[in-house]
């Protein structure tokens, strides 16, 4: 029998049993279980109480309600139960809700055991008994207080140790940050000094000139030959036949080796009217003597690139 394994299903089955809906053989089995099986007997009582309460509160569905009135209420004893339920539920609803106490704590258990001990000693005269009770109560309170104090002390020690560890960690982190700051300050100072020297040198020497390249044509014009510095960026200005794009991209190819040696990021024309695209190329890319060529492509709105010109040149020994 599956009784009590599935609470909801068995609850429903027990309701049907109580309302006489079950077939005779099944009802007889439950008759037996309701007397022999402790679990079933208790559950049946609980389900019956809930059924009666549902009737009293008017929460039974119409079919069950009709059956309840025609079958369940046929017995004087059961009518008596319903009358009791009416009064009981009215009393329950009148009373303020108050949650029953949770399982006993250490303190309540100690007090309970003290009470139990006093109960066993009731044959003693009341004076020693009262003294013993007071002593026992005081002792139990002391024990509870002691336990609480120990717990509090341990917690405080634990917290203190944790705070010490945290302080040490923070102190180490602070020292490291200070050292780092000193190093940064030194580096900044050094950078500022070298920057001042550079600006001074730059002011003395002339700014490097831009190398202007024209797009290659089919004519047999001689290849421009350049000499560039060994360090620093080399500025090229690539002249456009027409400024059709707002953005460009350039790659530098070693024409002798037939490989790509450098590529630019997005390039923006100096101005639309001038139709010139400035390109800075690191000097170390350009190895003399060698032939190179810029391949310039315009970047469309969708990011698609289209070749707009080729700029060949030769680098000679510096």
């Amino acid at each position: 029998m599956s009784l009590l394994r599935d609470s909801a299903a068995d609850g429903e089955r027990l309701v049907r049993y109580l309302l006489g809906f079950l077939p005779e053989d099944e009802a007889e089995r439950l008759d037996e279980q309701s007397v022999v099986n402790d679990d079933v007997a208790c559950r049946l009582l609980s389900v019956e109480n809930d059924l009666v309460d549902a009737y009293v509160r008017g929460t039974l569905n119409p079919e069950l309600c009709r059956r309840f009135e025609s079958y369940y209420l046929a017995s004087p004893r059961r009518r008596h139960r319903v009358r009791f339920a009416r009064r009981f539920l009215a009393a329950v609803d009148r009373m303020p809700a108050k949650a029953p106490a949770a399982p006993a704590t250490l303190a309540t258990r100690l007090r309970a055991s003290a009470t139990s001990w006093m109960f066993r000693q009731r044959k003693l005269t009341w004076r020693p008994m009262a003294a013993a009770a007071v002593l026992m109560l005081a002792l139990s309170l002391l024990v509870v207080q002691n336990v609480n104090l120990r717990t509090g002390l341990n917690q405080a020690l634990h917290d203190s140790a944790a705070q010490d560890r945290r302080a040490q960690t923070l102190s180490s982190e602070l020292d490291a940050a200070r050292e780092s700051n000193v190093e940064l300050a030194r580096a900044l100072e050094s950078t500022r000094a070298s920057s001042t020297d550079s600006r001074r040198d730059a002011a003395v020497s002339a700014a490097p000139p831009a190398i202007v390249l024209l797009p290659q044509t089919r004519s047999l014009a001689p290849l421009p030959t350049l000499a560039v510095a060994a360090v620093g960026p080399v500025l090229f200005e690539l002249r456009l036949e027409s400024a059709d794009y707002a953005r460009y991209r350039a790659v530098l190819k070693d024409q002798e080796a037939g490989r790509l040696v450098w590529e630019s990021g997005v390039l923006v024309p100096r101005s639309i009217a001038a139709a010139v695209v400035p390109v800075f190329v690191p000097a170390d890319v350009l190895k003399p003597p060698h032939r190179y060529a810029f391949e310039l492509a315009g970047v469309g709105a969708a990011g698609r690139e289209e070749a707009v010109g080729s700029y060949a040149f030769r680098i000679d020994a510096r």
């Binding site: 109480n49 309460d53 009981f88 329950v92 009373m95 809700a97 108050k98 949650a99 029953p100």
Partner: peptide, 8 residues
């Protein structure tokens, strides 16, 4: 308290 809470 238990009865009140249970049957409310």
């Amino acid at each position: 308290d238990l009865a009140i809470e249970y049957y409310r």
